[in-house]
Write a protein that binds this DNA or RNA. Structure first.
Lengths: 216, 216, 216, 216
DNA sequence: CATGAATGAGGTTTCATTCAT
DNA sequence: TATGAATGAAACCTCATTCAT
């Protein structure tokens, strides 16, 4: 078995033919499905190949080993969610705090819920050391991005911006993960966007010396 | 869905001899240590026994199977953290919201940080279905407890208490998990109690029709 | 009583490639050989695989577990012996008692002796509950078959046919098993067919009201 | 584990104190009970000790190893059954064939049925090499004994006495084993003595030059 | 003597990975 | 390229036996 060295975790090839592309995607989706239906412990290469409608041999043509498969699932998820949030953040540069929080939180929640299967599958892999690498990378990009946009808020200045941003992110990501994974009731799931916005905004307002503080 | 055998997850015997008691505890601690140093995937019964300074055979005298070992770790953690929070909550019945949040949050944070090894170990097992059972149970007790205490807050009434409590808990547990697991810098770790209190209180004040709302 | 899991005792796949077919048969024969040379207690999957010239992994591609291996050996033996006897019995419908007994007994003895390795191997597994299932099934078919043919005997009618048939079968199978397993001397082994015929015919004549009883 | 060398199979001590005697017997009976209720594969020393109401340690005070336990069960059974038959045979020296067969067969059947638990338990151990040794020994004594008594039959002389005796024994023991183990219906079980007598006598009369052959 | 905790070899089974077809 | 049979290391778990208490 391949030990968790950081080598060899990237896909083997990016095939140009359409058929190969389809196979690759089928394997990718199958990985998620097996993770959801069987759990991390029962995720085997043969099961994935079967669910994808191919054979193990073919699977190994695209991914050098099993870790790479998990890596791919995690990477795609965090990349895409990150991308959605980045776009939202860019569109509210230089707006008031409430607008920024609203845009960022709702983009995040939408992205997660659109990919809820991926999110849950990812969770069962969260304990894995190798997946952590990707998540930490993405976390750093997220912190930088949020720091940048919050600095432009027209109506709030933060004494300790790094801390505020960290808590913001922890609240947004952590509590959403808790909810998705904990099997929250539909009523909560529906209200999630608004509640999370309230949670984050409530915190950030407390953390900011609001510019109009005195005029209240 | 992941199959849940649910068979025989309770410890095999509670031995009376002092030697046995020590062995039992050594195995318990070894499980946590191996989980932390090697991760869930590399947690093997032999490795646990070795780290505990015994043999596999002995391990199996106390736990009927590997799942039971994990079960024991998770159960003890959630039980003890839950207990700390419960005590704190009882001591602030009928106090103002800020006091309640402060007491609950700081009890939770203290309990988690006192058991930070257990908490991290628990995380790498979070994906396992069997552990979920315990966590869900404990969640339900937590919700009931928080609902009860928040109802007694002298200065806040909630239109939608169930939702507010759920978000409160998700924020408290979820973001703490995120932080502990994400490897937060010491500066954050130190500030955690206060920040988390701010996060939760900010939210709950927004969610409450504050009694003195008008007099502001 | 011995617990009967009764799960998954049928072979895993019937492969089409010639290589696989050969492997399957090699494993089958190896099971018998190991049973004979080492006994049931020392029949291990690794030993079987080694003797078959393959690896354990391969063994498990064909049989889902060890029980299934034993099951296969027993099933094939009782099926084939049963088949031989059935054919012999059909060929003597409507003949005199002596002819019927002669045909049935000699077919049985020949079938057993032709497969004497299987027969001995089977014996060391006889205590196993799962094998009993098959044997009992085959016993029932045997009783039905013998009942049918004895009813057509031209020169004998039985007051209590069910009992007579049962004793006939018990004598035929039981004493042959005893002999094969007890390590009878070659002289006995050679004479077995005739002696067993004598044993069974002696009994059945006593059990029948012989039609020509009076004219003797 | 002790390999099946023929060493060390005898009980460790024959205790004189009554309490020890009782313990020894309890272990003996427990072995049979476990064999019947769990099967050979699940016969473990701990299970036997528990069922006997003692501890493994104590068990090992009386038997040097597990094989010795099985050995003891088998030995006692074959010894006692053999003894019953021997007494019956002695009582019919110099009597007619029918009397001899009747005495021997009914003694055998009675002895077996009186110890039917032992008989069944013994069966699940039959495949074991070590038990075979005892059975073969006892078989030899049996053959000698039956040869001796049949030679005194007043009304029958055998051309090939060794063969006749062997078949007699195989029929008696083999078919009884088949019946007991096959789970014969009660009707058969009740009729067994008479039927078996008929079986054996039918054969032996055919095998003998009956002295009064001419006078028929 | 009795107990039962401890040991660890050995058995069963799974699964990532390779490679001949 | 695709397939899936083969491999064997490694995981889980059991149990005969010993020995300190």
């Amino acid at each position: 078995m391949v030990k968790s060295t950081s080598a060899n975790l990237s896909p083997r090839k990016m095939p140009r033919q359409a058929r190969s592309q389809a196979t690759l995607e089928a394997i990718f989706q199958a990985t998620i499905q097996v993770l959801l239906s069987e759990g991390r412990q029962r995720l085997t290469t043969i099961r994935v190949a079967e669910r994808a409608g191919t054979s193990v041999g073919t699977l190994y043509q695209y991914y050098p080993n099993k870790q790479a498969l998990l890596f791919a699932v995690v990477r795609r998820h965090v990349t895409e969610v990150g991308e959605q949030v980045r776009r939202a953040a860019e569109s509210v540069h230089g707006k008031p705090l409430a607008d920024i929080v609203s845009a960022v939180v709702s983009a995040f929640v939408r992205a997660k819920i659109d990919r809820i299967d991926e999110a849950r599958a990812l969770f069962s892999v969260a304990g894995e050391l190798d997946s952590r690498v990707l998540v930490v990378e993405s976390e750093e990009r997220g912190l930088a991005m949020l720091t940048a946009v919050l600095r432009t808020a027209t109506d709030a200045k933060f004494d300790d911006l790094p801390t505020a941003v960290y808590i913001f992110m922890a609240a947004m990501i952590g509590s959403t993960t808790y909810m998705i994974e904990g099997g929250a009731p539909p009523s909560i799931l529906r209200a999630w966007g608004g509640q999370l916005e309230s949670l984050c905004l409530g915190y950030l307002e407390r953390a900011a010396r609001s510019i109009h503080n005195d005029s209240r």
